[in-house]
Structure formats: C-alpha cells, structure tokens
C-alpha cells in the first residue's frame, strides 16, 4: 500500500513533496502499529492536521474493515460445516509456515549481529516458556538497546 500512497499523494495529487514524504516515512517506520496506517496518518496530518489524519486513516482502514467483517460474519455462519472445517485444517498449517518464513526473512535481513539474534531468541523464549506477556518483549528489547549503546 505504501508505494501507492506515495504515487497518489506525492506525484498525482501533489499534497506533499517527495522529500517530505520520505522524511516522514522513515520516522513512521519506527512507530508501532501497521505501517500503512501510520503512513496514511502521517500524510493526512502533514496536509491537513488532525482532520486530515483521521480522514486518511479511515480511508486506509475502511475498505478492508468491511471486507474482513463480511468474511467473519460468513465464516461464523458456516463454521460448523465439515467441508469448511476440513479446509481450515489444511489451510492453518500453511499459515503457520508463512509466519515461520517471515521470522526467517526478518531475522536474516533485519538482525545484524550475533547478540541481536541471541536477544531475539531469549525474548521469544521468555514468552513461550515463562508466559511473559509479549509487551515485555518490546520493553525488554528497548532497554537492552539502551544498555548496550557504545
């Protein structure tokens, strides 16, 4: 979605300059939440303040919101049908594999040092083995980052 945002907002509508977009985009990447939402929010805020941000978030979220709502409603109705249950039994292992591949991808591309890899494993282990709330992973990672600064 982000390349589309850039093409529409910078090139087509000229709401903001390329440099403004790139500058803001590099910052919103560090924020929590969905990148597409953060980007839309930043662009909207830059162009028209809070109303702009709200409008852009709504625009970015609403189409898929209604679609997934329809999917959820339909799924809720037909969940008990054996054929659909069989479908899910086949589909869910594939989804697990997809997420696992994302771990590999992110770990390979995003982590630079051995200590970062070890930290990722430790943090994941803390949640899986000791049932630590995942939010402590974020806090733990941030604190570790602070502690190890040169």
């Amino acid at each position: 979605m982000v390349p589309l945002v850039r093409r529409t907002m910078v090139e087509k509508e000229r709401f903001l300059k390329e440099s403004e977009f790139m500058h803001g985009f590099s910052l919103v990447q560090a924020l929590p939440g969905v990148l597409a939402v953060n980007t839309a929010c930043f662009v909207g805020n830059k162009v028209r303040g809070v109303p702009g941000a709200l409008v852009c978030i709504a625009g970015a979220v609403m189409p898929s919101f209604f679609i997934i709502l329809a999917v959820a409603a339909v799924f809720g109705e037909f969940r008990h049908i054996p054929l659909l249950q069989s479908f899910m039994r086949g589909a869910t292992p594939a989804v697990a594999a997809l997420i696992a591949s994302a771990v590999l991808d992110m770990g390979w591309r995003g982590l630079d040092t051995h200590s970062e890899v070890v930290m990722a494993v430790l943090l994941a282990g803390a949640v899986l083995v000791f049932s630590l709330h995942p939010l402590w992973v974020v806090i733990g990672g941030g604190v570790w980052g602070l502690l190890r600064r040169p």
Binding site: A30, A96, I99, A100, A102, V103, M106, G107, G110, L111, E116, V117, M119, A120, V121, L122, L123, A124, V127, L128, P134, V137, V138, G140, G141, G142, V143, W144, G145, L146, R148
Partner: peptide
C-alpha cells in the same frame, strides 16, 4: 532504544510462528 526493538520485533513474530 529503537535498535533494541529490532530483535524484539523478530521475537514477537517468532512467538506467533
């Protein structure tokens, strides 16, 4: 702080996996 969040993000997705 932000650099420390990188392994945290990987850890979160690993937990999901």
């Amino acid at each position: 702080f932000l650099r420390g969040l990188r392994p945290a993000a990987v850890a979160l997705i690993a937990v999901a996996a």
